[in-house]
């Protein structure tokens, strides 16, 4: 009876967790289903730290179950030492094992923090594309400064080309996140953040704001379309034909709070627009470094 109870207690949750895992793996687990070099490195990092943690988790579970069964009060045959309260050797082991694991993980952390620093430009023979990102109430504006075009709630990028994002906000703080391409970075008013990505797989990847910014925040969705270089060139050409231009007047129009905005594009953008949005809130590099370092 007791035996069955324990088996049931262990197997029911395990069965539940297993079915969740099966469900997730049969659907689009965006964080693990990476389509960019940064995202795939981040994925292996998550799995590696999980693996390392198992060296503590498993002993804990095994000891918990084993001790619970062996030293239960009605098992009089087990040894009982009520005053066994300390042991230098055993306790040193407790301090040592996690310390070693954390030491290993610390080295990985330090290296990966530098390797996967969002500000670090990706090395590639292909010329990178710059995109300026503005989080607004409640949509994303993407400016392609070299091409002189802009889009709202949609990004087109060519495959195997490094993309350098610069991000700010003309709204409360948002977080720019395309799980299949890379981890997120904040877009903050008056501040300039950077993120470099490169996709190695054609497709459409959904992106969103991960940080609450007010009523329409859940609708701040955009698609990242990863296409061939030629398709990209065509897209740029087509976009230049669009009738809309983004100047100060149309920007003010765009800046009004709107929700669930369907994507559209601008054929022309005034070159200083991004800077003017950034400096509207009186940003200086000096302020920036202070905010970070505090």
């Amino acid at each position: 009876m007791k035996f069955f109870k324990i088996i049931a207690l262990i197997s029911v949750p395990l069965f539940f967790i297993a079915s969740i895992v099966i469900y997730v793996s049969s659907h689009n687990a965006q964080v693990f289903n990476s389509a960019g070099i940064i995202a795939s490195k981040e994925k292996s990092l998550i799995l590696f730290s999980l693996f390392l943690s198992l060296f503590v988790l498993l002993p804990v579970y095994i000891m918990l179950i084993f001790f619970s069964i062996k030293y239960r009060a009605d098992n009089k045959s087990s040894k009982y030492s009520p005053n066994f309260g300390s042991s230098r050797i055993v306790e040193s082991v407790w301090w040592l094992i996690p310390t070693i694991l954390i030491f290993i993980l610390s080295i990985v952390t330090w290296q990966s923090s530098h390797d996967l620093d969002p500000y670090k430009k990706i090395n590639s023979s292909t010329k990178p594309i710059n995109i300026q990102v503005v989080a607004m109430d409640w949509k994303w504006l993407f400016i392609y400064p070299e091409e002189g075009i802009a889009t709202v709630n949609a990004i087109y990028i060519p495959k195997d080309t490094p993309i350098n994002f610069e991000l700010t906000a003309d709204a409360p703080m948002n977080s720019f996140w395309v799980p299949q391409l890379s981890g997120q970075i904040y877009a903050m008013p008056g501040m300039n953040t950077k993120l470099s990505i490169m996709s190695d797989k054609l497709g459409v990847y959904s992106g969103r704001s991960a940080n609450i910014s007010g009523e329409g925040f859940a609708g701040m969705l955009f698609d990242v379309n990863v296409v061939n270089q030629s398709q990209y060139n065509n897209w740029v050409k087509d976009t230049r034909l669009s009738s809309r231009v983004l100047n100060n007047t149309s920007y003010d129009q765009l800046a009004k709070p709107t929700e669930n905005v369907t994507p559209f594009s601008y054929s022309f953008v005034s070159p200083e627009l991004y800077k003017s949005i950034l400096y509207k809130y009186n940003a200086t590099d000096d302020n920036m470094s202070k905010a970070m370092g505090m």
Binding site: E42, L45, L50, T109, S112, S113, Q184
Partner: peptide
């Protein structure tokens, strides 16, 4: 018992979140 079982999982998740690039993907 419930505490040890679950809290350990939370701890593992916490250690994963403590690795900055992993956190970039899991934050928020």
């Amino acid at each position: 018992i419930g505490f040890i079982l679950l809290f350990s999982i939370g701890g593992v998740a916490g250690v994963i979140l403590a690795v900055p690039p992993a956190d970039f993907q899991l934050h928020n």
